[in-house]
C-alpha cells in the first residue's frame, strides 16, 4: 500500500499543484494576462500543438547536439586535466573564470559570429554544459587511491596503463553523474539562446507569443520545456544506473 503510494506520489504532487493553481486562478479571478489557469494552458496546448511540437523538436535536437559536443570535449579535457597535477593546477583557474562568465552575455557574440539560427543555440548549450563534465572526470581521475597506483606501478605499469585499467573505468560514476547535470544545463543554454535570437525553438515561440500577448501559449511553452527537461534528466539517470550499478553497491560511491 505505502509503496504504491510512494510510486504514485510524483504524479499526485504534480496533479495537486495544477489543481491548486487552477483553484487560485478561479477563486481570486486572476487575469489571464497575469497568470493563465492550467485549463487555459492545456487548451492552448491543444490549439497550438503543431507549432509547439515542431519547435520543441528543434529545441530538443539543438540541446542534444550541444550536449554531445560537451560530452566529447568534456571527457577529453577532463582526462587531460586529471592526467597531471600540473595541468590540473594550471587550467583550473582558467576554467573557473570561464565558467563564471554568464553565458547570456556570450549569446550576442555568438549571434554576431554565426548569425541568427540554430548554431548559436547549439554552441550556448555546449558552452554552458561542458564544465561539470570536465570537473567530474578530472576529479574521478585525480582521486584514485594512491596505494592502487603503487600496486600497478610496482608491476611496471605506465601512466597510460593505470589510466586505462583503473582511472577511466573508475571515473564512470562521476561521468554519468555529471551527465544528468549537464543535460539540464545544455537545455537551459539552448532555450536561452533561442529567446535572444533565433527563428525556431520553444524559446523563440515563447518570445513571439509573449509579444502577441498570448499568455496561455507562453505558459504552454514553459510546460513543454519542463516536460522535455524531466524526460531528458530521467533518460540520463537511467543510463547512469544502468552503466554504473557497481558504484552504488560498493563502498566507492563517491559520486552518489
Amino acid at each position: 500500500m505505502s509503496s504504491t503510494l510512494e510510486k504514485l506520489s510524483p504524479w499526485l504532487f504534480t496533479l495537486g499543484i495544477f489543481v491548486l493553481w487552477e483553484l487560485v486562478c478561479r477563486i481570486f479571478k486572476v487575469d489571464t494576462f497575469v497568470l493563465p489557469a492550467p485549463s487555459q494552458i492545456f487548451q492552448a496546448v491543444g490549439q497550438y500543438w503543431l507549432p509547439l511540437a515542431k519547435n520543441a523538436f528543434v529545441t530538443l535536437w539543438t540541446t542534444l547536439a550541444g550536449f554531445a559536443l560537451a560530452v566529447a570535449f568534456g571527457i577529453v579535457l577532463g582526462i587531460i586535466v586529471g592526467w597531471s597535477r600540473t595541468i590540473y593546477r594550471g587550467l583550473y583557474p582558467v576554467m573557473i573564470g570561464f565558467n563564471s562568465i554568464p553565458k547570456v552575455a556570450v549569446v550576442p557574440i555568438l549571434i554576431i559570429w554565426f548569425g541568427i539560427g540554430i548554431v548559436p543555440a547549439v554552441l550556448t548549450a555546449f558552452l554552458i554544459s561542458f564544465f561539470p563534465i570536465v570537473v567530474n572526470v578530472a576529479t574521478g581521475l585525480a582521486s584514485m587511491e594512491p596505494e592502487l597506483e603503487d600496486v600497478l606501478r610496482a608491476l611496471g605499469a605506465k601512466k597510460l596503463d593505470i589510466m586505462l585499467k583503473v582511472g577511466i573505468p573508475r571515473t564512470q560514476p562521476y561521468l554519468f553523474g555529471s551527465l544528468k547535470v549537464a543535460i539540464t544545463l545544455a537545455f537551459v543554454g539552448a532555450v536561452m539562446s533561442e529567446t535572444i535570437g533565433a527563428n525556431s525553438g520553444l524559446g523563440h515561440l515563447m518570445v513571439q507569443a509573449g509579444s502577441n500577448f498570448q499568455m496561455p501559449l507562453v505558459f504552454a511553452c514553459l510546460l513543454g520545456l519542463a516536460v522535455e527537461g524531466i524526460v531528458m534528466y530521467a533518460v540520463f539517470a537511467y543510463v547512469e544506473a544502468y552503466f554504473t550499478g557497481w558504484a552504488f553497491r560498493s563502498s566507492m560511491s563517491a559520486a552518489a
Partner: peptide
Amino acid sequence: MAFQNPNLLPWRKVIDNVLLPLEIVE
C-alpha cells in the same frame, strides 16, 4: 604488494581483479 585496504576494483569480478597484474606485467 598488498595493503591494509584491499583496493579491489569494484567493476571487475573477483577473477578479473586477480588477473589484473597479468594484464600489465611482462
